[in-house]
Design a protein around this nucleic acid. Structure first.
Length: 602
DNA sequence: GTAGGGTTAG
């Protein structure tokens, strides 16, 4: 066989194979060196097929290129290779490096990027959030006029700035030039939503409708996620109507986005309905249900959905497990939480990031503070969420000193605390009666960390002062607040009044509390307890009567235990359980034991 | 031949 015939044979084989192994690559490499020049169609078949992005293969690609000469070394060949380079999600930096290496190679060989090269390079930049490199491409695209003449260039540039969080540049690119298509609109909307500006995203969608541009599934998925983030059920319903009215295909992405939107908007029943009617479901569909229900405080339902998922044999992923752990944490279901931990270990899932943080939180909330600490210490990478979960957990368990030690460790690890971290820190001070320290941390919040204290932080301080017996100081603290006190603050002050039997102050605080939160029964309950403690039974009864007449939203005290995989929920005064008589009998026994114990202790 | 999609924490 002469070399021409061999190439024909190689061409046929390449055409039918999907990818190419390193060994085959090496053989072809040797072959090329021996039988140059290489027929062009063969190259164009071969290079995009190099789909295993090992460093080794990339070295081969480069050495291929080094053996080629013009006219084999042409722009379309480079474009095919750059585009064919698989993005390696585990090593984005390496993928970008390879793309830039190829770019350099083509420049050295006197070839300039065209309207196909620029988008693929920009895509790689966006994937690695390489703003600098992307900006260089932007400059080039301006000089060559590609930004204005080619919508792919414009859109990939917009995407680059969107993922890098430079929303102004996204908007400017969108506004300049006559070229804009559905992808431009979608990228603009996505840019806003990803920046945490869902309102602006929705507005851009309305602008798009005004511009008579029709949305497709991809656009609507993003718009739905914006509605979900806004918790705007009415808007979400309108989008669903749009989907119906325009006959948009309800693919699994749309279905998942709808499920998420309905749950975050508070319509769990409709979310179930959408979920049940979906012709195709994937793990994200289940995750949307589980985390959405957990988000709504329907933890038991979330676990029921998880059990159903297990029953049909669908493998959970890490998002599933985070939702399950979150539900366990809030129900205090340690047993299932431990099962998830074992599952994570068994499947060699890294107990870092979301999973690690959720485990720390779950153990802490389930009372296993030692286990929480063990997971925390075992984490390779800890972030502000890990630290906060640990600090809040320790504070809840009264491990004041340790909570503050962990907090002190944060700057050494280069991790900035945020608002929630300080809730834990102040709660720790409150439990430890550390008034001076509490004041200091509260001041540090704004002076050192540039965080603006919110009503929750003021509430913590009021709680701290109240528990320490400084009721006047607590009252003074509320008076001097630069922001409007809300239910959290008034509630804390009312709690302080309860401890110190300050009936008159309590009465005025209750009025304030009812003003900001008229629908809840908490203020009445607390106040009637204050009356009772002060032996003012008549007032207490009167208050209870007012409550009954007002049809208040009752938020009953609730607890749950898990027994043999079944979660039993108990509400205050609840008699719905099959064995409720036995339960109350046992409860009475326990209470009398406790009381005896208390008497002995005094 | 190219570009845009859903779910996760304290």
């Amino acid at each position: 066989m002469n070399s021409q015939e061999l190439w024909v044979q190689a061409y046929g084989r390449l055409k039918s194979c999907k990818s190419i192994s390193t060994t085959q690559l090496k053989q072809l490499h040797a072959f090329i060196i021996k039988t140059r020049p290489l027929p062009l169609p063969t190259q164009h078949l071969m290079y995009p097929k190099l789909t295993s992005s090992t460093e080794k293969n990339f070295t081969h690609i480069l050495s291929f290129l080094n053996h080629l000469e013009k006219p084999d070394l042409c722009l379309s060949l480079y474009n095919a290779i750059i585009q064919g380079l698989p993005s390696n999600p585990n090593n984005k930096a390496s993928s970008l490096r390879q793309v830039l290496e190829l770019l350099k190679h083509m420049l050295v060989n006197g070839l300039l990027p065209d309207n196909y090269t620029v988008p693929s390079v920009l895509k790689a930049c966006a994937q690695s959030r390489a703003l600098r490199e992307g900006q260089q491409m932007h400059t080039y695209a301006i000089k060559t006029g590609l930004v204005l003449s080619n919508v792919y260039v414009k859109n990939t540039l917009m995407r680059l700035y969107a993922v890098c969080g430079v929303i102004n540049c996204v908007r400017n690119l969108f506004d300049e030039g006559p070229q804009r298509d559905l992808v431009s609109w979608t990228t603009l909307i996505q840019g806003y939503v990803k920046m945490g500006l869902p309102r602006e995203g929705v507005e851009a969608f309305f602008d798009m409708c005004d511009a008579k541009m029709m949305a497709d599934e991809m656009t609507l998925v993003i718009v739905l996620s914006a509605c979900s983030k806004l918790g705007d059920l009415n808007l979400g319903r309108k989008i669903n109507e749009y989907i119906y009215a325009n006959g948009v295909y309800r693919d699994v992405f749309i279905g998942n986005a709808l499920v998420d939107m309905y749950l975050k908007g508070g319509d769990a029943d409709f979310a179930y309905k959408v979920f049940n009617e979906m012709p195709v479901r994937n793990v994200v569909s289940w995750n949307s249900m589980i985390s959405g229900l957990a988000h709504q405080g329907k933890f038991k339902e979330a676990l029921d959905v998880f059990r159903e998922m297990q029953r049909i044999g669908l493998e959970p992923d890490d998002v599933t497990l985070v939702g399950v752990l979150n539900s366990c944490a809030n129900l205090g279901v340690l047993e299932l939480g431990e099962w998830v931990h074992a599952y994570v270990d068994r499947n060699r899932i890294e107990a870092d990031g979301f999973i690690g943080n959720a485990l720390v939180d779950m153990y802490a909330k389930c009372g296993s503070i030692d286990q929480a600490f063990r997971v925390f210490q075992g984490m390779k990478r800890r972030d502000v969420y890990s630290y906060t979960a640990m600090i809040v957990g320790l504070a809840m368990h009264g491990e004041v000193e340790m909570a503050l030690d962990i907090f002190a460790e944060m700057p050494r690890m280069g991790i900035e605390p945020d608002e929630v971290t300080f809730i834990g820190v102040l709660a720790a001070c409150s439990h430890g009666g550390l008034v001076a320290e509490g004041h200091k941390y509260f001041r540090d919040m704004s002076s050192v960390y540039r965080l603006r204290p919110q009503t929750e932080h003021y509430g913590c301080m009021v709680d701290l002062l109240g528990r320490a017996g400084l009721i006047n100081e607590a009252e003074e603290f509320v008076k001097n607040m630069p922001i409007e006190p809300d239910a959290f603050v008034w509630g804390a002050l009312l709690g302080a009044c309860r401890i110190h039997g300050k009936v008159e102050l309590a009465e005025s605080v209750m009025k304030k509390l009812l003003k900001v939160e008229p629908e809840r029964d908490g203020a009445y309950v607390l106040m009637s307890n204050i009356y009772s403690s002060a032996n003012r039974w008549k007032d207490a009864v009167k208050l209870r009567r007012v409550m009954k007449g007002k049809n208040m939203k009752k938020i009953p005290g609730c607890s749950s235990i898990e027994l043999d995989g079944v979660v039993h929920e108990f509400k205050k005064g609840d008699k719905s359980h099959k064995r409720s008589k036995d339960i109350y009998k046992l409860l009475d026994e326990i209470m009398s034991h406790v009381k005896n114990h208390e008497l002995l202790a005094h």
